[in-house]
Design a protein around this nucleic acid. Structure first.
Length: 490
RNA sequence: GGCGGCAUAGCCAAGUGGCUAAGGCAGCGGUCUGCAAAACCGUUAUUCAUGAGUUCGAAUCUCAUUGCCGCCUCCA
């Protein structure tokens, strides 16, 4: 099945036809390094991480470029407030970003360029635009003249005359037209600057992406992505700059992820409802956040709330419970010669193979992770059925099915970036986080469980039940199985 | 004002012209269990905001109505 992508430019799903057969060039707008990453950044990162992973799994040679904006007014402000250089601010928040991404199991893109490392490319691009008469310099600033680029507005579906009518009064009287945007900004006294043909200054916001995507992916590449808020003006302006300079559209497919809302409200600084990735992963395992994102289609808005994360946690526990059962059952069944034998055909084997195909097909269809997860949970049910319910099934058949299921879950994990941990490690982390939230001492709980284990061996059920009730009052749920007791909070 | 999006069970959420409307959470009945928990089996929307239309056939297409939301200024 061919890969389909919803293209913002045409507002339709289209079949991916890469510029170069078998390869995909993808550019995604990254962060401006002036603050810690919030869950909106997490969503964009996770969405395009899955795009990257799935295309790779489908055999494409993917070059994924995600930039860091390390020169910007907000960075300068912060540096001034703290009395440090902009490079220190950028370095700090890029480092924290990398930590957050690693926690979320987001793969590092192929190339992660920084704006300040590409000044010459930007200056050259602006010069080209100036030479072509599309950009004009005024007293150290350089502007892009939107009227000289006839298809301006093509991505966002806006028309120049309509925008003119609604344009807000611009205080910058250097511009010939209020919609013209800055390519190069003259630096004020004390601000960081780079030398240029127009004097000391710094690049405008949009030009870095035009310069860096072209440097690493060429004049026209395949996929350009980012949050939906970037459609206008950022991506519109990027297209204008690139296409005016090279004569070719920079990207063939434009992908935009939807917003994260907080309790049905827009996340914004003024509402004070911004959640950082690092504060959330102190509350929940990072995979909870990841699963939460993937349960909705990437273009729909998602509504973040504690209740929705709790639900995602419960779903994640369901998956890991199946994986843990699978692991334990396989350990018990272990017989190397059996593993080597070709698996006998069975309904379950057939079902697993179908689930893999359906899973992959869901992602082929515009990266429908929500639908794909449905098949993951179908697979979990099948695993649970084999490990705990199918008492009459011969061990050899179970072994073959579980080996195939383990391979399938490895594939799911590779593509979605969840369910890749050892279940025991996942549950350990989950328990620690939940215990910390409630101020519970895990060592004390473990000790009480050990005491209870003795009473169980003595078949003193009433004392065993007393301890269970005592722990249950704190939210600790015990699961007795042959030989050992595991536990979970909530 | 301009542009765009969304409305599917108690909740979250796929499905966008034709098999029984995925999956998760919650609920109910049963199996398993010393009892539980988990798991499994079964069950929970004759129906997809409302009204009209197109079609042999629509949750899916068209029009209208209602409600919610985003962008148009920095923003993932």
């Amino acid at each position: 099945m061919p890969q389909k992508i919803f293209n913002t430019k045409t507002r339709k799903k289209e079949i991916l036809q890469p510029v170069r057969e078998g390869a995909v060039g993808m550019y995604v707008c990254g962060i401006t390094a002036y603050d810690v990453c919030h869950i909106g950044h997490a969503r964009a990162a996770v969405v395009f991480d899955v795009v990257f992973r799935h295309l790779k799994a489908r055999g494409y040679n993917v070059t994924y470029v995600k930039n860091f904006t390390d020169i910007d007014d907000k960075i300068i402000d912060r540096a001034n407030r703290e009395g440090v250089g902009i490079d220190q601010i950028a370095e700090r928040y890029i480092h924290l970003h990398d930590e957050d991404m690693a926690a979320l199991n987001v793969l590092t893109p192929t190339i992660t360029p920084r704006a300040t490392g590409h000044m010459e490319d930007m200056v050259a691009l602006i010069k080209t635009l100036e030479e072509k008469g599309i950009a004009y310099a005024v007293d150290g600033d350089v502007f892009f003249a939107v009227h000289n680029f006839p298809v301006y507005g093509g991505l966002s579906g806006r028309h120049l005359d309509e925008m003119m009518a609604g344009a807000r009064v611009d205080v910058n009287d250097k511009k010939r037209n209020p919609l013209d945007f800055v390519l190069w900004k003259k630096s004020k006294e004390g601000e960081p600057f780079w030398e240029s043909p127009w004097g000391k200054g710094r690049p405008g916001w949009h030009i870095e992406c035009s310069a860096m995507s072209r440097r690493y992916l060429g004049d026209t590449f395949d996929i350009h992505g980012g949050g939906e808020d970037l459609i206008f003006p950022h991506h519109e302006n990027e297209i204008a700059q690139s296409q005016a300079a090279t004569g070719r559209p920079p990207a063939n497919y434009w992908m935009h992820n939807g917003f994260v809302k907080i309790n049905a409200e827009k996340m914004s600084k003024s509402l004070g409802n911004i959640f950082s990735i690092r504060e959330i992963i102190q509350q929940y395992h990072p995979e909870v956040l990841r699963l939460f994102m993937l349960q909705s289609h990437y273009r729909s808005p998602v509504d973040y709330s504690d209740a929705s994360l709790k639900e995602a946690r419960t779903a994640l526990i369901r998956g890991y419970t199946a994986l843990q059962q699978m692991k334990e059952t396989r350990e018990k069944l272990v017989s190397p010669d059996q593993e080597k034998r070709p698996p006998e055909p069975s309904d379950e084997m057939k079902k697993l193979s179908e689930l893999k195909d359906k899973f992959d097909a869901s992602l082929d269809d515009d990266f429908n992770t929500a639908q794909a997860l449905g098949y993951v949970f179908d697979a979990a049910r099948l695993v649970n059925h084999v490990t705990t319910a199918a008492k009459k099934m011969p061990a050899s058949a179970k072994q073959a099915i579980l080996a195939a299921a383990a391979d399938l879950f490895a594939h799911f994990g590779d593509v979605l970036g969840v369910f890749q941990l050892d279940p025991d490690i996942f549950f350990h982390t989950d328990r620690s986080l939940e215990a910390a939230k409630r101020g519970l001492d895990t060592a004390r709980i473990e000790a009480r469980i050990a005491e209870r284990q003795k009473t169980r061996e003595e078949k003193d059920w009433s004392r065993a039940d007393d301890i269970r009730r005592e722990l249950a009052a704190e939210g600790v749920i015990l699961k007795d199985s042959a030989g050992r007791t595991t536990w979970l909070i909530d």
